[in-house]
């Protein structure tokens, strides 16, 4: 009995190649290698092969079996890979569809500015102090060198509660408390942020409630030059390294001399633009050397100690920094407005 082994191998090869799925290849495997498959059938023919040819026949069947197994294995791997490839293809998504939003909240822009200022001052060794918004006339005015008949009470329309209490009109009230608390624990180096209230009608540039931050430094030999140097550092931290400052004469009852501080415009760099009203300068801080009466009233020897103080409006800084044109935005809390400020900066 002659078997054409080459032909058989070719037939097997063709069957395997034709299988186009894992199911089909399994059927081919059963047909070829199963108990009742073609290879088994050939094995069954062994008994009819003459003895001298048995060895040769056996080797040929074995070779055919091995090559078949090899071909089947390769084909299975091939089909599995194709199946995975097909699965992946089927699973493809449109990556341009919208994400599942991870919403994160925002700090209020005034908090952002206040915290940034607090950080600048803390790095310079200032302690942050707060105080009551419902304040005594004593700390808001009397101690700040503004007695009852003082003309500058006209400058600040005050919300009064009764004869002794009012809503503080200036964070100077906190400074006066600090002076008293630390009179025997000098030097003083503090900033005092907080809400203040003035009897103003609300419009684009006025608010009956706003936030101030004042700073106070008291020690031996503190000079107006020290004030200028300190404010220069602060202006640069807030508005950029290139900023210059300019001092102008002003008046506050609790400082002498008193100054307005202008910062060179951060928008145009001083060339002139609508933000600085074409002056190149932006008025941003009030400041001065602490009035000797203010020190004396708090129990500090004004012959030995001197100090400087300064104040800034948080809304004003935020409006300048972000180009906000209406102060009422801060208190209307339109979420779209607030969320403008959520990014780290």
């Amino acid at each position: 009995m002659a078997v054409n082994w080459e032909e058989l191998k070719r037939q097997f090869e063709e069957k395997i190649a034709c299988a186009d799925s894992l199911n089909a290849i399994e059927q081919v495997r059963i047909d070829l290698l199963g108990k009742k498959g073609q290879i088994s059938a050939l094995m069954g023919q062994m008994k009819d092969v003459p003895n001298e040819l048995k060895k040769e026949f056996g080797m040929a069947v074995n070779t055919l079996k091995q090559s078949t197994e090899k071909m089947l294995g390769e084909k299975v791997e091939q089909l599995k890979a194709a199946a995975i490839a097909q699965q992946l293809k089927n699973e493809s998504i449109d990556i341009t569809l919208p994400e599942r939003t991870r919403h994160y909240g925002t700090l209020h822009p005034l908090t952002i500015v206040q915290q940034k200022l607090e950080d600048i001052f803390m790095e310079m060794g200032y302690e942050v102090w707060e105080g009551p918004e419902v304040e005594l006339d004593f700390y808001n005015f009397e101690r700040a060198n503004i007695p009852a008949d003082h003309p500058s009470r006209d400058m600040q329309d005050t919300f009064y509660v009764d004869v002794t209490r009012l809503l503080r009109t200036q964070t100077t009230a906190i400074q006066m408390r600090v002076l008293e608390a630390k009179a025997s624990d000098l030097p003083i180096k503090v900033v005092c942020p907080g809400k203040v209230y003035r009897k103003d009608d609300d419009d684009a540039t006025h608010s009956h409630q706003f936030i101030q931050m004042e700073g106070l430094v008291v020690g031996e030999n503190i000079t107006l030059g020290d004030l200028k140097g300190s404010l220069e550092l602060i202006a640069r931290s807030m508005f950029g390294r290139e900023r210059q400052i300019r001092l102008r004469q002003s008046y506050f009852p609790f400082t002498e001399p008193s100054l307005e501080i202008d910062v060179s415009c951060h928008i145009c760099g001083g060339k002139g633009c609508p933000t600085c009203k074409n002056t190149g300068w932006i008025e941003i801080l009030g400041a001065g050397m602490v009035h000797p009466h203010v020190l004396e009233m708090a129990g500090i020897d004004s012959a030995k100690y001197s100090g400087f103080a300064f104040g800034v409006g948080i809304e004003r800084v935020a409006m300048l920094k972000y180009g906000i044109d209406d102060i009422r935005n801060f208190y209307t809390d339109n979420i779209s407005f607030l969320e403008t400020y959520k990014r780290f900066e």
């Binding site: 790095e123 430094v217 503190i222 001092l247």
Partner: peptide, 21 residues
Amino acid sequence: GYGNIVSTLPKMPTTQGALAR
């Protein structure tokens, strides 16, 4: 004129910054 003022920084003992209560 305020232009005569030269910027300096306070010469005083180092203090430590701190947040409010």
